[in-house]
Design a protein around this nucleic acid. Structure first.
Lengths: 344, 344
DNA sequence: GTGAAAGCGCTAACAA
DNA sequence: TTGTTAGCGCTTTCAC
């Protein structure tokens, strides 16, 4: 491969254009306050030499890196079993690159990684961080806040209750759940069950709340614990069928869970939606459209969540170089919509 | 949030420890050639001040960034419809962080992005690149090679035929396909069909080759074009059933395709595996284990592919700071294994 | 509007 | 073994 191509420096461009380094720098950074003919000459020199600014040198003086860390804790392989993560990443990436920022991906699993991430963030390699705080007891948020890096969280962090200065983007899990359960009730169903997600994640807890908003606490036997996986959905559905044979509707915490439930229902000869109506959450296309029957579900715009997270962070970043204090928007909650297919 | 914490510099640590900057630098970078008591003193000063080296300043002189770009072209949303991408990323991330390297993720879609990526890579922000060259006519590989950045490709690039100096990691697509088809033949099947993947990707082309290695070119009507998606699998299966009603086995280019085929077979009342045996490729657990019946498939260790890619790149990176020429290992091909479940 | 010069924080010769 | 010194390539006052 091409060995040691000696990349041209500002100096070289300046020499070629017959101007000073300062002028070249000005042109490269927007060209304000430089007379047109000179701008032209510098531009040409840049092109001819194929000059690209050295980011390290630039960061050294500007203290900006044009890079944002995305921290994904994935103690469970679940993160990789559905396209959730990838979609969000895509949204983030789009927004970031649109503003000339790079995405540094930090995947963590286990204690050691936490320390490493903490160190990295504290090391000032990036201008900010986007963090997916998956679990209630996750030590990551603490570490990060201590590192003093501007941060936006994906999903409402469990500990955000008190602190008003935590910025996050979340879906309207509770509202979406409410809508789903209400739809089931409107369908005339009276024994509406809920298979929860992993309850140490706020998304699962919030969906459960939404279910309770409509159904109340009347029939606790209709709430079964799941874990966002198909296997968990199967297990829960079996338990449900066993415990409440008269169940006529199920609101599953996500599509994967619903797919497991669907399988068990079929196995038990229950027709969907005639005997039991089923609703999922997420609208993960490859899952929701492929189940039998296709799944009615609550859609959340995952890619948009990612994009919004990035946007909030970048705004904050700009803000703090401008004024001293930023008006932290705290939490932003994206709406959900019910997508009707065949299962309910 | 914490505002402008003025991070301590080498200078500050030196002052506190009562030594020179050079000594602190030595200690921070491993501490070789510094007497124990001094090392101790410096370490303490570092801790007390919470000193973290400034990477920008360091890169400026070492010309090393401790960062590797991962370039993923995703012209098709398919990349996000299966966990392939995420698994590979995880493998890469593990290996990279184990060697204290950061992962800069570059997601591209469309022409504009290519230029951007080319510029970024040429800009010398990273020490090397890991690239997934998905399509035969992808302009990315060219751009990258021109940027002169050490690169390892994921999957055999279509244009690598001539050039011996292209480093890549691939699965044994051809061998795996051969094994699958042979298994079907051993089962006594005589009308073994193949639903291909997107043939502008070498993985699909290689799997087709493997099929032909066993079946020859005898019955071209048994080869139907798919595109790695469930929908493509359905379409192809319908066509197949229509064209060759006597088909008694199907080797699908991947699990997603197989799942589509399975659905159509059920729809047509064909029993699997009694009437038609089906084999997939990938062993994507959430797909292969959840189909009805569970899918017999060719497993490839995706995470290991990622890890290996990173390892090769890092080795190359170390190599070129050592000797002048590196012994490029060209292509590394990982073995596949047949996983027997119920569908064949 | 343009140039000269002073660093940003660090590493790597070279001296001592 | 330790310290001194000269940059790495860039931005940014401050004169002109």
């Amino acid at each position: 491969m091409t060995d040691t191509a000696p990349r041209p420096t500002l100096e070289a461009v300046a020499a070629r254009a017959g101007v000073s380094r300062a002028t070249v720098s000005r042109v490269v950074n927007g060209g304000d306050g430089v007379r047109e003919p000179l701008v032209e000459r510098v531009r040409r020199a840049v092109d001819e030499l194929g000059y690209v600014p050295n980011q390290a040198a630039r960061s050294l003086v500007t203290r900006r890196h044009g890079a944002v860390a995305v921290v994904v804790a994935e103690p469970e392989t679940r993160v990789f079993a559905d396209p959730f993560f990838a979609l969000q990443l895509r949204g983030i990436s789009k927004e970031l690159t649109a503003h000339d920022n790079q995405l540094v991906l930090l995947l963590t699993e286990g204690r050691d990684d936490h320390a490493r991430v903490g160190r990295y963030l504290a090391g000032g390699h990036v201008d900010g961080a986007l963090v997916f705080s998956l679990h209630l007891d996750d030590p990551l948020p603490g570490l990060i806040q201590r590192a003093g890096v501007p941060t936006v969280f994906g999903g409402r962090p469990g500990w955000s209750e008190g602190s008003r200065d935590v910025v996050y983007v979340d879906s309207d899990n509770r509202g979406g759940a409410r809508e789903a359960v209400r739809h089931l009730v409107d369908l005339g169903r009276t024994r509406v069950a809920h298979i929860t997600g992993a309850l140490d994640q706020t998304s699962a807890a919030d969906r459960l709340e939404g279910y309770r908003d409509v159904m109340g606490d009347a029939a606790p036997e209709l709430v079964v614990r799941g874990d966002f996986t198909p296997a968990g959905g199967e297990r829960a559905m079996r338990e449900l069928l066993d415990r409440c044979p008269d169940v006529d509707a199920v609101f599953a915490a996500n599509d994967l869970t619903a797919s497991g439930a669907l399988r068990v229902l079929r196995e038990h000869g229950r027709r969907v939606p005639e005997d039991v109506a089923v609703i999922g959450f997420d609208d993960m296309l490859p899952v929701a459209e492929q189940t039998d029957p296709p799944l009615t579900t609550v859609r959340q715009d995952i890619e948009e969540m990612g994009r919004l997270m990035a946007r909030l962070l970048l705004r904050d970043l700009d803000g703090r170089s401008g004024r001293g204090g930023g008006d932290a928007p705290a939490g932003v909650v994206l709406p959900t919509t019910l997508v009707r297919r065949a299962s309910a």
